[in-house]
Structure formats: structure tokens, C-alpha cells
Amino acid sequence: MHLDHTHDGPSAISADAHRPDGTRRALRIGLGGPVGSGKTATVAALCRALRDEISLAVVTNDIYTREDADFLLREAVLPPERITAVETGACPHTAIRDDISANLEAVEDLEDEVGPLDLILVESGGDNLTATFSKGLVDAQIFVIDVAGGDDIPRKGGPGVTTADLLVVNKTDLAPFVGSDLGRMATDAKAQRAELPVVFQSLRAEGGVTDVAAWVRGQLAAWTA
């Protein structure tokens, strides 16, 4: 080794849009949100909706080692080699925002091992309303909340609700049972997010993940344009 060597190592240190061989890397979309809001179910539904048209993979960030990854494996939404679990030391928000090194390694390994990939979904373990993804890790992020978590969440705001590229309000089928006012949630979300999109969905209803899948397709089209 020589100190006067030129700096010519592999380039993928952080959010570089290209792989070391110069090809464009996969689009990375993060999914965050509170515990139990339906992130993993949304990921599973997206995989089923998109797997026949694009090449995709999933990285999970669990509180307990592999629970979300194991759920996806059991549901067989993707072949096992396309699902990777990152261990977070009880702090998913650290792993997706403050110290993204393990997640970057996971997405790069997936591209090396099962690539080429069009899309990698990076799911955060359920966390609090302030947990957002680093721009060094993902290109766009979806924040998933649900009606049962309280219809005042959009009003409360927080970085996830306010700045996520897409806000998903999940489990709309439960609204009558938990006394959540969907109209109020929509108005509050609009006030917090201005022009940023909001999708109301129930994965149990006809259509399910259709709107979110359409949004993902739009992101992909923009990424590859």
C-alpha cells in the first residue's frame, strides 16, 4: 500500500445512485410508522402486486431479530433469498436514520446476490412518530399509520406524518368500530402535508394496496427516466 495511491476504490459509500460497476442501482423505498399500523402487511401486499412486473427485494429492521422477515417468508411473498433482516439493537430508528451502515450493507448485498433489482423496500420496525429514514439510505419513504391508532395522529404531525413522500392511513375498514373520523384525518393530513399525497387503504377490502402500488410505479418510472 502506498499513501500516494490515487483514491479509486469502490464508490458506493452512501446514497450514490450508481453501483460500483456504473449501472444504476435499484430504487429504495422506506416504510416506517408506529407499531401495528400495518407496515409488514403493506410490504407483503406490495410484493404480491409488483413481483410479476419488476424484480424486487425487501430489507426488514426488526426490534426482535427476524420477526417481520419471518412473517414475509411464511407468507411466501418473495423467494427467501430476496428477504434480508437487519438487526437493530432494539433501536430501529437508529438503524434507519442515525447509523444506516447495516442497512446500506444489506441493500448492496441483495443487489450483488440476487440482482439486478428494480426496487428494494426497506421496512422499519414499528417505532414512534418521529422515526424517519435517512436520505442516505432511501430515495423515498412511505409513512404508515392506522385509524385505530387514533384519528388525531395526522393533526399531531411529526416528521413522519409531515414529510414522508406518501402517507398511508391503513385499516379504514376499522374506522366505524374505533370511532375514527376519516374525513377529519384527511383534512388534518392535508393541513400538515400540503401537496404531498395521502392514501386511505384497507388491505381487507377490494383493491387493497392498489393505490400504494400505483404510487410506487410512479416513483419507479421517475427513477428510471
Binding site: 499513501l3 495511491h5 476504490g9 469502490p10 451502515s101
Partner: peptide, 25 residues
């Protein structure tokens, strides 16, 4: 090795160096 790889990424971004590049290769 996992931690070494992650530290390598952070260190190369923080203190670019030919020796770190060589070790990463």
C-alpha cells in the same frame, strides 16, 4: 467482520485514504 465492513464505510466517507481503499478492496 460485519462491524469492520460498516466501520470501513463510515471511515472512508469521513477520512478518505488510499490505505482504507486498499483494505476495502
Amino acid at each position: 467482520r460485519k462491524l469492520g465492513r460498516q466501520l470501513m464505510r463510515a471511515a472512508r466517507a469521513t477520512w478518505p485514504s488510499a490505505e482504507l481503499d486498499a483494505l476495502a478492496r
